[in-house]
Amino acid sequence: MLSKAFVVAKNNWKNIKTAKIITYILMGLIIAQDIVYFILKRTGVYTINAGNTAVSIGNMLFMFIILGTFSIATSHFKKTMNLGAKRITYLNGSFLTYILMTAVISVVAILLYYTYDRYLLVEFVRADTMDIIYWFGWLGKGVVVTYLRLFAFLLLLASVLHTICIIQDSWYGWVTDFLIMAIISVFTPIAVLRKSLVWFFTMIIFHPSPTVQITSCIVLSAVIYLLNKPILARKTG
């Protein structure tokens, strides 16, 4: 069972070329910009100013998760079925892809934060770097905790995106879209309801306790995985 899930995961990885290309282009653009600034600074033409901030190069890898998940959920299902896979194998393989992908991307993103991004700050090429591990308050409790918080959050993100994409060809997909929009637009302006939204996002992102945040994300991902079983049983295209 697991070996077949690995086959699907390997296949998913090989066939998300568009996601890879777009991510590499975005990362390349940031590197190119940094190189230009670096040269200008060394030649004395350029001096750093407060507005010179950039998105962390590691965060660009999250595009890969978003675009990759979109491809796997929208175009890989039918093709995997045409290779004779069972629905459960596709589901297990897809979630295995997300686990491996988010595990590796989290490592690389943190490495880049502590090396590439830091180096540019030290060298005064940038005034600041925008990185979610800083903005979400995931630093300060050790690299391993930061890694686990990022990994759990990205896994939840991939699970949610996968499910939303895969249900778009059914009526409950449209109902879900409507509900998400309704929740955001109705809950945000009403103070009492807004509290529940704040509570939800605190649980999955901002909670001061890493254990609570990591557990919330992992448990929600597992629930979403289980929800995908009946969804896939009815999926035809």
């Binding site: 296949n11 090989k14 066939n15 093709k79 290779l83």
Partner: peptide, 10 residues
């Protein structure tokens, strides 16, 4: 099997 079934571009 439907006519024109899609496969991965492998």
């Amino acid at each position: 099997i439907e006519s024109g079934s899609q496969q991965f571009n492998m």
